[in-house]
């Protein structure tokens, strides 16, 4: 068990450091603080900022319907 735990910890650290160099900086729907943090540590953002829309926002609903616009 102890041996397995050691192998697992080494594998995770290896995977982390390997992925940091391999992972390009990806564009997120966020600005300022989070963008800066993500450019410093892209891998952390890769595995942690996926849920709940990643901080992106949908456009506000159009008060006029498309049919009204045509008129």
């Amino acid at each position: 068990m102890k041996k397995f735990a050691k192998i697992a910890v080494v594998s995770v650290i290896g995977l982390l450091s390997g992925s940091i160099s391999a992972q390009p900086v990806t564009s997120q729907g966020t600005t300022a603080f989070v963008d800066e943090a993500c450019s410093l540590a892209p891998l952390i953002c890769t595995i942690t900022t996926l849920g709940n829309g990643s901080g992106d926002t949908p456009p506000l609903p159009d008060p006029k319907k498309p049919k009204d616009k045509e008129k």
Partner: peptide, 16 residues
């Protein structure tokens, strides 16, 4: 808007 765009990724990070 700033609060929303920042808080969601930060909370996701705290969860992870």
């Amino acid at each position: 808007f700033y609060f929303y765009t920042q808080s969601i990724p930060i909370l996701n990070f705290v969860i992870a």
